[in-house]
Simulated scan of single mutants.
Amino acid sequence: MRPFTLEVPQSELDDLKARIDMARWPEKEPVDDWSQGTPLAVLQDLVAYWRNDYDWRRCEARLNALGQFMTEIDGLDIHFLHVRSPRADAMPVVMTHGWPGSVIEFMGVIDKLTNPDDPTAPAFHLVLPSLPGYGFSGKPTRTGWGVEKIGRAWGELMARLGYEKWFAQGGDWGSIVTTAIGVQQVPGCIGIHLNMPIARPTEEDLANPSPAELKALGALKHYQDWDSGYSKQQSTRPQTVGYGLVDSPIGQAGWILEKIWAWTDNQGSPWDALSRDQVLDNIMLYWLPRNGASSARLYWESFGSFAAQEIAIPVAVSAFPREVLPTPRKWAERNYRNLLHWGEVERGGHFAAWEQPDAFVRELCLAFGQMSSA
């Protein structure tokens, strides 16, 4: 374990501004919505703020104040935040982000989980790793870093930190890594929480679907028809798309912003759910480490792992209404043989902790509180 301090050279920030100034923009889209992708006017507005008003040093200072570390696992540096609770009864939990997210997703829940205002509420020691090829973690130079291996690496990480028993949580790729932890029964993990459970319908379900099943099937069709092009590219040719993302801040921002719009619980604008600073803090964790290709390679490694799998250890689920691929409880119960908690949340989308931190914290406290008591 070695401490890690972010000190981005000013030359990197100057280079970003120079690239923005030299950008070649396409013409305006011939539609008045997001149906062809990120609208020109929306992206130009965000980039103008990025160029002239955004303060990276604020984000950098926040990350450094939380406590960042590096540790080498199987030849790869893993970057993580380790934020311990002052409470003696705190429970350790490893929380995993996804794409196009980062540890930035958890900034609004860290204080609430480690040091809650209510002394009777559960408290947690938080371990927040950056996926391989994401954030400031190392970039794998050989194949094999799929979700199963990442799940085992997180077990090694928790052991090195001295946690003999711990919980795991995740959404998006974090949900798949956390599922892999449960399926493999990684030593030390005593329960998991998912805000994107994965399950599949049976032929009987399809023959007579309930309203919840019809919603899930409709969302899956929309995803396949209109929302999955990024995943097909990243799971088949991540290197090709990486050239543009690593070279162009405009390209990287547009690539991510479209998914922020599509996957958050908003009324038509991404800024209904998240602020420009929140989104740019996250984009910077792709831009600064040049992660356009390395982050996409996880799709090449593990996109086939988005499949229903049985888990024997305790499982908790929080269902947010604007999840990209909602899963009815009926489907999930077939895979999660020890489902202790199923929470239906009123608001929120794919980025649960980022969008709805208070609801997310309540769900984790309920879920892991029940598991701890059990």
Results as ranks from 00 to 15, higher is better:
Met1Lys: 06
Glu12Asp: 12
Leu16Asp: 05
Leu16Met: 03
Arg19Phe: 02
Ile20Phe: 07
Pro26Gln: 09
Glu29Met: 12
Val31Phe: 09
Asp32His: 10
Asp32Lys: 07
Trp34His: 03
Ser35Phe: 05
Gln36Val: 01
Arg51Cys: 07
Asp55Ile: 09
Ala61His: 13
Leu66Glu: 09
Asp74Ile: 03
His82Val: 03
Gly98Asn: 13
Ser102Pro: 11
Ile110Ser: 08
Thr114Cys: 15
Thr120Ser: 15
Leu126Trp: 11
Val127Arg: 02
Leu128Phe: 10
Pro129Gly: 12
Ser130Asn: 13
Pro140Tyr: 09
Lys149His: 14
Gly151Thr: 10
Glu156Leu: 05
Ala159Phe: 05
Leu161Phe: 11
Ser175Gln: 11
Ala180Phe: 01
Ala180Gln: 06
Gln184Asp: 11
Cys189Tyr: 05
Gly191Pro: 01
Pro197Asp: 09
Glu203Asp: 12
Ser210Lys: 09
Ala212Glu: 15
Leu214Ser: 07
Lys215His: 12
Lys215Ala: 12
Leu217Lys: 04
Gln224Glu: 15
Gly229Asn: 15
Gln233Thr: 13
Arg237Trp: 07
Val241Glu: 06
Gly244His: 07
Pro249Gln: 11
Gln252Arg: 13
Ala253Gln: 08
Trp263Asn: 01
Asn266Pro: 05
Ser275Arg: 10
Arg276Thr: 15
Leu280Asp: 09
Asn282Ala: 13
Asn282Phe: 10
Ile283Met: 14
Leu288Glu: 12
Pro289Trp: 06
Ser295Phe: 06
Ser305Gln: 14
Ala307Trp: 00
Ala312Lys: 12
Pro321His: 01
Val324Met: 12
Thr327Cys: 14
Pro328His: 03
Pro328Cys: 01
Lys330Leu: 12
Ala332Val: 02
Glu333Leu: 00
Arg337Cys: 02
Gly343Leu: 03
Arg347Lys: 14
His350Leu: 04
Trp354Asp: 07
Glu355Val: 00
Gln356Gly: 00
Cys365Met: 08
Phe368Arg: 02
